[in-house]
Design a protein around this nucleic acid. Structure first.
Length: 272
DNA sequence: TTCCAGGGATATA
DNA sequence: TATATCCATGGA
């Protein structure tokens, strides 16, 4: 994969293990929309317009370095794909998900976003997050940034409820106060078990939400979020709870479990 | 243990 | 077309 840095973006050639559409459409990111012949993608206080034609990818942005990391352009997806493809039960899902990547998203944004995701559907989640950005995020030429923690702290429980968060409003109010930069640093420095425990101390964060935050926001591959789709796809007589499924596949795929989860999710939701 | 709390999408009648 | 169910979490 060849990456050319331009002043206003990036050009990537030979992006065989990269699918912009599949990566964005597999439930890990809520701030993007199909825009002409590509996608507008928003993360933290950044924006890019990305477009893919075969194995050539164009990313227009003021911050190429940020989006090079965001899209994990420096990581060996060919190698990770090959290792997962070798598991017989994963071969079909892997082949259908060759270009799916784990995005490196902003930890604070992920905590807030995945609290909203609990017991919710994607269109509604997108709506709530969009309204929170308009209410408290900085206005930019391309739209609104995700609010900083300080800006989020100016919103009341009633504000969050009015923006559509429903009964999650008090959790968001509290998270804006407890999820400090120090909290994030602390979680990042912890091993998986300790990180999970710390995240679970935030109200509104249960096991599934914590797994999503670790995988999509903290770059932790050794997690395996099990939502209802995964449970339907993977449940057997022996593995009949989300917890049992999680433990089993975590042990089997190790540090690649998170990517395996994305392959399975994408295959079952978007391909099959 | 069971129930409930937004509301948009999906399934079923 | 109308109505029931789903969703992942915390608290009663």
């Amino acid at each position: 994969m060849e990456i050319l840095h331009r002043t206003n973006g990036l050009t990537v050639r030979g992006a065989e293990y990269f699918s912009l559409a599949d990566t964005l459409e597999c439930g890990q990111v809520f701030r993007f929309f199909a825009d002409g012949d590509g996608y507008s993608v928003f993360s933290s206080d950044k924006h890019c317009f990305a477009r893919q034609n075969g194995d050539e990818l164009e990313i227009d942005t003021d911050d190429p370095d940020y989006f090079a990391r965001y899209f994990a352009l420096g990581e060996d997806y060919a190698g990770m794909f090959a290792r997962l493809r070798a598991f017989p039960e994963l071969s079909d899902a892997a082949e259908a998900s060759k270009g799916v990547r784990l995005l490196r998203q902003d930890p604070f944004e992920m905590v807030i976003s995945f609290i909203i995701s609990a017991n919710n559907n994607i269109p509604r989640i997108k709506g709530i997050i969009g309204r929170i950005c308009e209410a408290a995020g900085e206005k930019k030429p391309w739209g609104y940034a995700f609010p900083t923690r300080d800006a989020l702290m100016t919103l009341s429980v009633e504000d969050f409820a009015r923006l559509g968060a429903g009964y999650r409003a008090p959790y968001l109010f509290e998270a804006a106060r407890t999820v400090t930069p120090e909290f994030i640093t602390d979680v990042l420095a912890s091993d998986t078990g300790a990180a999970m425990k710390k995240l679970l101390s935030v109200k509104g964060v249960g096991p599934k939400v914590a797994d999503c935050i670790m995988l999509f926001g903290l770059g932790r591959g050794d997690t395996f979020p099990v939502d209802v789709w995964m449970e339907h796809a993977l449940a057997t007589d022996e593995l009949n709870t989300a917890k049992a499924i999680r433990e089993h596949y975590l042990a089997r795929y190790g540090e690649l479990a998170g990517l395996a989860q994305q392959y399975i999710y994408h295959y079952n939701r978007n391909v099959k």
